[in-house]
Design a protein around this nucleic acid. Structure first.
Lengths: 138, 138
DNA sequence: TAACTAGTTTATAATCATTCTAAACTACTT
DNA sequence: AAGTAGTTTAGAATGATTATAAACTAGTTA
C-alpha cells in the first residue's frame, strides 16, 4: 500500500464512504496533483483506463464523482452545456472559458473583484457569484 | 395579416431567412413582449401548442431557434447544464439563477460592475464576461 | 472464522435533450 | 407554370446521464 492510498482510505472513512478499490483509484487520479484539475467523466474514464490495470465501470465513475461532489471534494462546473465538468478546486472562483478549444482555466480569486453587487429578488439571498470570462484567439 | 406579422416577415427577409408560417409564429411568441424572455425549447413548444392551432415540429423549433441565435436575435445561456436556455436579451448581461426553482432572472447591466479584470492566458483576449449570481430562499 | 447486513459495483437498459436524415413541401424566381 | 433551393417534418440516431437489479464486499457481530 502506498502512502497516498492510506491517506485516501482515511479521507474516505472520515466521510462515511467505504474505501473501496475503485474509490481509492479515483482519489489518486483526482487528488494526487499539484494543481487543481478540471475533468469530465469521460476524461476520468480515459485516465483510469490508461494508468490503471483495474477496470472501473462507467456507473461507478458517475456514482463516485457525485459522492465526492456531495462531500464537498469536487465542484461541478456548468459551462457550454454539452457535458458536466468537475473541478478539484472547490473554493468559489472564476474561470476563463475558451469557446474554441472548450478549455477551462481557473482564475485566482484575488485577480477579480466585483464592485457593485445587485440586489437579489425579494426573499432570496445571493449564495455564490461566479464570473466566466469567455476568451478567444487574439 | 396582423401588423406584427408584417414586421416579422420584413425582419426575416432582411436576415436572409424565408418568412415561413412557422418562423413567423415563433417570432410572435418570442419577440412580441415587453420584457426580455428566457425559455427552453421545451417551453417554446408548450407555448406554441397552447396559443396556436398550428403544430410546429420539434426539429423546426430547434432549427429556428438556432437560426435566430446565429442571426443574433437570441442568446444561448448555459447554466445548470441539463438543458439550453435562450434569452431574447442579446446584450451582454448578468443573471440571477435560482438553483431550487431553476429560474433565471436578468440583471440590469448598470447594477453590476467588475472592478479588477484578470489577465487572459497568452495569445488570448477576453470577449465577454458574465456573472451568475446563484440565489436561494432566505 | 462464519454469517450477516448495509453499502457498492457492475452491466445493461432506460431516459432525455439534441442532432441527423431523407422525403415531402413551399417560397421565390424565371 | 415549372424549377430550385430553402424548409419542414416524423422518426431514427446519438450521447450524456440515470435507473435497475443482481452480484459482490467491507465492516460488524457472534
Amino acid at each position: 500500500m502506498t502512502n497516498s492510498e492510506a491517506i485516501y482510505i482515511e479521507k474516505l472513512r472520515n466521510s462515511g464512504l467505504r474505501p473501496t478499490k475503485q474509490r481509492i483509484r479515483i482519489c489518486e487520479v483526482l487528488f494526487n496533483r499539484e494543481k487543481t484539475f478540471h475533468f469530465s467523466i469521460n476524461d476520468l474514464m480515459k485516465i483510469i483506463q490508461t494508468k490503471t490495470n483495474e477496470k472501473i465501470s462507467l456507473a461507478t465513475a458517475y456514482n463516485t464523482v457525485h459522492a465526492f461532489k456531495k462531500k464537498g471534494y469536487l465542484k461541478e462546473i456548468n459551462i457550454g452545456n454539452e457535458i458536466s465538468y468537475f473541478d478539484t478546486n472547490t473554493q468559489s472562483h472564476h474561470h476563463f472559458y475558451d469557446n474554441q478549444t472548450k478549455e477551462l482555466v481557473d482564475i485566482n480569486s484575488g485577480d477579480v473583484e466585483i464592485k457593485k453587487i445587485p440586489t437579489p429578488p425579494n426573499g432570496k439571498k445571493i449564495i455564490d457569484a461566479e464570473i466566466t470570462f469567455k476568451i478567444s484567439k487574439e
